[in-house]
Design a protein around this nucleic acid. Sequence first.
DNA 1: CGTTTAGTTCGGTAATTACCGAACTAAACA
DNA 2: TGTTTAGTTCGGTAATTACCGAACTAAACG
Lengths: 170, 170
Amino acid sequence: MIEDVELMKLKKELIEEMGVYFECQDMLSPLSSRIFGYLALAGDKGATFDEILEELQVSKSSLSTNLQLLQSMGRIGYYTKPGDRRRYFKASVDNMINRLDDKINSWKKERELHVKVLNYREKTLSADDKLTMKNRKDLSFNKHYIEFVDAMIENLCKLKNNLITVNQVQ
Amino acid sequence: MIEDVELMKLKKELIEEMGVYFECQDMLSPLSSRIFGYLALAGDKGATFDEILEELQVSKSSLSTNLQLLQSMGRIGYYTKPGDRRRYFKASVDNMINRLDDKINSWKKERELHVKVLNYREKTLSADDKLTMKNRKDLSFNKHYIEFVDAMIENLCKLKNNLITVNQVQ
DNA sequence: CGTTTAGTTCGGTAATTACCGAACTAAACA
DNA sequence: TGTTTAGTTCGGTAATTACCGAACTAAACG
């Protein structure tokens, strides 16, 4: 692969853009999210410790710590080649699916909380309160939201399984 | 509304549980997420500055700052009553829908990034590389993921409009 | 067995964030 | 017009987080 200057610039920009996204979206440290972004670009062959070091210009210790962090979260893994001591870190399809699982679980938690809130609100509203239009609307919104979250979870699971199937073909 | 001891304890627990959730999920400060949780429980009538102060036991300045933050994010609003200077802060249905919008936008960003990564990867892979099974599978996963995200976005939008409609009835 | 390679561990520091108290403002009340 | 109410603003501090360098380990190589 020939790395021309333009492509290298594009790479740096993409890593930074993904970095910001994962930082906010997945609550990763700045460095963790840039590593993850870099590995997303590196694709199937992954990248070695030194390659990441070179690209991101950070200390060995920070890189080591953040690679361990990402591995413990199930976001990356590594493989080795016989006769080569280096690890090839990569964000595999399995890791991507782990990330989906996290999203599914967070919707499940959101559902659980909504049920608890609805429950609490029904307990605390007096019989009179329940008859007012505002409150009836409010509670019905809550119920609809729970149904909505159910649909979301179902969809996520379906599409996750879809991705697994596609990946397993051959 | 009579606040018995048991119910108060349940309330505190729920606020804390939501607090932790929103902190991670929506990147809110600890206090912001607890305020939001409290207002979710308070429901349609909302809560005054002093009521929140009393419940969460924080300083006026912190409360003020975090209320402004939540308002600027579109996560809460307030209304006033004639002859009552106090603001009644609340997380209305509209605010909940704003939150959904944020989620939709983040999926859109995720889609955009995936397209960019796919683009980059196709550029950097040589013609030979593209023929290997691993890489073909890898790129096809990427394409499937984009389709998957499209489906997610469509679903979120549909269900958001659903919620808006339900809310507008009367 | 000494040296190189490929990381890891540990202690510390710089930067950021979250929160606080005190002083302040602006409206309303007496 | 002075006082209360309902917050806001500002400067500072405590806690957390992110990162770093230096010393270390464990495997492999010569």
